[in-house]
Write a protein that binds this DNA or RNA. Sequence first.
DNA 1: ATAATAGTGTCTATTAGACAATATCCT
DNA 2: AGGATATTGTCTAATAGACACTATTAT
Lengths: 242, 242
Amino acid sequence: MKREPSAEEKAFLEQYRPQDYPRPAVAVDLVILTIIDAQVRVLLVKRKEHPFKGGWALPGGFVRVGSGKEQGEDLDAAARRELLEETGLDPDRVLIEQLYTFGRAGRDPRMRVISVAYVALVRPDLAPIVRAGGDVSDADWFSIESLKKQELAFDHREIVDTALSRIRGKLEYSNIAFDLVPLTFTIPELRHVYAIVLDREMDPGNFRRKFNRMLEDGVIERAPGKRITASKPATVYRFKRR
Amino acid sequence: MKREPSAEEKAFLEQYRPQDYPRPAVAVDLVILTIIDAQVRVLLVKRKEHPFKGGWALPGGFVRVGSGKEQGEDLDAAARRELLEETGLDPDRVLIEQLYTFGRAGRDPRMRVISVAYVALVRPDLAPIVRAGGDVSDADWFSIESLKKQELAFDHREIVDTALSRIRGKLEYSNIAFDLVPLTFTIPELRHVYAIVLDREMDPGNFRRKFNRMLEDGVIERAPGKRITASKPATVYRFKRR
DNA sequence: ATAATAGTGTCTATTAGACAATATCCT
DNA sequence: AGGATATTGTCTAATAGACACTATTAT
């Protein structure tokens, strides 16, 4: 929106003082997903402070809001900053997108907190470096399965569920699967990702046919080499982009 | 999340005082859509105050945040309240759902405002009563076409575009079309809604076949009477729910 | 040689789309 | 009777799923 404010409007803005109606705190929370040991995993951090001290929660933090002309950081920037801070991962190498905004009154007992949730997909070859960043005991990749028996802080379970449902939906009609697989991959490996995320077997033949259409569309291309497996080696491909 | 805080945590909460880091204002903005005169229309209101005084903007307002134990209203509640206040429409009779959260720094020149945008679909038979609520000159249904030449306040054009793109997408795989049509409708009427929203003609025969599957699935049912038209009258149906 | 799985082929059912043909009502 | 459009029918192409079959490698 590029426009030139009128003189009158400029004057208004000069003398404008925000009313002190109570304002909520605004946070970004991240659902950082990857695949480790054939399981979908979400990164959780152990809370150091009340409330839910010692409990597991999604990584996140408050959005930086400046004062005066400096209004602070964009929401996306806050999400990317948190990703970097909490995992050490380069936000440019990770798919990160806004998920949904959770703002139920009382979701944080301290005060009114509105949380803009983001989902991030981390390629499994990048996931191991995450631990290196912080104290191992303070962050861990929880499998979705184990989450069923794990209590989460705040409404973070609901946020995780929303994220999974979103990712499962997008798997059908988008290319996000390529963000859950190393830079080069075989068709069976990609198929496993689908099977793991959707939690159902995919027919190898039918999957390959779908995949071949992507090849024809130029979305992916062959990469050099073959992947050695316990049986017949598989052709290696790579996604075109990045 | 139902849980019993420990005594220590209770003590923590008792003495907790929110830090006075600057906080953003949080608003809900509504993209209220309907169909009038065979055009998709969005409800805009004329701004009474700076900035953008006299300009057209999406209806909306700040989320009510309490202080202390009273944390105020949920985001959905705020959206429903604004809908009622700005249009007089019963939120229970209107499809309303969260769209996306816009929080770019500088999007409001006064101060940092994070806007949780909602989309609402108003059945065309309910749309006329909207005017009655407020001053006619202060609110109007703008056709999408006319919006191209109409400047909007803040980043509201981006919000409207996001809403339209969302609605167009959902038209393909959900039942939202029934929220853009009167309680009873004919197949051609429903087809016109698709054609208007997607901005392309729909083949009458093919559309009917898709529609017949909904009939078989029990999503819709025949309603009494026939719709008299300029030519052959059409069978009347109704959506099963509400 | 055998196990395992990569990769191909075939058949069926479903759905979208183009388009022709018929039915029914208003004027 | 004629115009308009609701409604039905037909054909083709694209896609998904079930499943049989062949190919190639490690062991």
